[in-house]
Nucleic acid binder design. Sequence first.
DNA 1: CGCTCATTTGCTCATATGAGCACCATCGCC
DNA 2: GGCGATGGTGCTCATATGAGCAAATGAGCG
Lengths: 314, 314
Amino acid sequence: MDEIDELLSIRAAELYYEENKTQDEIGQALRLTRWKVGRLLAQAKQRGFIRIEILHPRARRLPIERRLRDERGLADAIVVSTAGVSSPEELQARTAQAAADYLTALRPVPRTLGVSWGRTLFEISQHLRQGWATGVNVVQINGGVSLNRRPGTAAATAVAIAQKGGGSATLLPSPAILERLETKEAIESDRVVAGVIELARSADAYLFSAGAADHSSVHVESGYLSAPDVDLLVQKGAVGDVVGRYIDSDGNIVDPALDARTVGLTLDELRKAQLAIAVISGPGKHAVADAVVRSRLCSVLVTDEATALHLLDG
Amino acid sequence: MDEIDELLSIRAAELYYEENKTQDEIGQALRLTRWKVGRLLAQAKQRGFIRIEILHPRARRLPIERRLRDERGLADAIVVSTAGVSSPEELQARTAQAAADYLTALRPVPRTLGVSWGRTLFEISQHLRQGWATGVNVVQINGGVSLNRRPGTAAATAVAIAQKGGGSATLLPSPAILERLETKEAIESDRVVAGVIELARSADAYLFSAGAADHSSVHVESGYLSAPDVDLLVQKGAVGDVVGRYIDSDGNIVDPALDARTVGLTLDELRKAQLAIAVISGPGKHAVADAVVRSRLCSVLVTDEATALHLLDG
DNA sequence: CGCTCATTTGCTCATATGAGCACCATCGCC
DNA sequence: GGCGATGGTGCTCATATGAGCAAATGAGCG
């Protein structure tokens, strides 16, 4: 395509997309046949001169979803558009909404849903509508007696998801990370705790997020880890955590001793799941998202456009 | 339109615009008739959920051009797209290119073209192609013996436009602004100068830009005005200059004494012109652009999208 | 200069889309 | 509960568009 045709294709595109002229009318205006106009428009599209965006909080990016499924081997992928997003909160809200939508539309409806906790999960619980399902029981899959008093604690999240889904919540009454291995083993051998973990293992589906390995982590905020602890993990190669377990960019446990003191499903148990839905979004989570997908910790990923593109091209 | 239809229209738009499905296929996927799909898509468009942009340095915004013509009473308007513009230089280049294109396509071809000088005019002269016209003579319409040595001086601009247009340039051998009124009157009474100004008055078309009233002005750069001079003009209400004459937001001369010392066509002479093409772009020139259009200093405006929107809505 | 081959052009025809209209469900009103 | 009004739905039909193909154009080469 030469210079002159390129310019003509732009003129044609202006008349077609901005002025709603027919190809025939454009042909008359530019002294071209309507077929030539059609070809110019096709070329303008094909060369990427025409960008069509869907501006809506609920808009998704289907082509990127397909690429994620095909190129990264996911069973399913949900990618929310970042067009028109003005704040990190809005991005988080969009992703949570998409996750809630996905859960609501999920068939067969899981009888038991294993969930983690954190900011993302709490927001998903808020975006689910009352009656999103009937009879969905929820079980926590990792320890999470919150140490702070903010709303959105582990228990509130699981309870909200269960209540809105017409089922009941089973909480895992344990801290996320214990200070001593012996305490962790003692807690896990407790009849109630062991029962909850057993129930968690048998869940039909899992819904969890991932945290970035930095000081903004809920583990720091909740007091399970200190800022220097996190720095040390980063030094060892940690990119983030899934259900409280810190992984490197290949999805391997960074600190086995720490991991042994962490209560809940192990990553290998999660990997064996039929349906593991990870919800990960935000610029700070590109690295964890990559690790999660690479190491097959999830079969379904709900994320934002920028993160998805990072997984594909970055 | 209720919530559910709005969501459906977004899903439909995704399948239509991103996946290139037909409305019929979308109907099958979403369990709707194809007519319903068509209506949903129409509503999505109408409600502004669909944004179509033409990404190209030569792209124009025809709907905005029409609004400028209709709402601001311009004979013609050229608005370049700002989509994908990354630097002020690129914006300037796009606008200059559009002005060059407009000149090239102009019919009837002007036999004599009056031009001002400055950064914008120089850039236009560079974007004109060799042979853009045949036999177009160029005459300077305001004083402009440059005091500095940079390329793009007043003379070089006029000569380039004329040379590429197969004609000759007539320069106005005078400073832009004189220090004393008597000197200005003496210069204007000089046979050669008076002849050039007479020729300028008889031009078929004028091409000029406008400067912002700030320290970046070419008058400051060229030494005709000092920074405090400009500050004083701003205090008196100046928003910018046209052919060296400073105007307020209504297009009136801000400082008649200064104006009397300025050599070249007067603004009223410019206003009487059949065809006066103003080329004004950049965020710093919104106010001058508005003054120029409001006071009918130009019949044709070449500008950028942001400036145009300012003229319409701001 | 004439030939070949590749590309572009203008066409026919099938398909996709939008306009306009009859019909039907839903709602307020009696 | 009957009844007209209102808005949405599915249709017919005209139009716009894209696929595929034959003719025309023109560049390259003997």
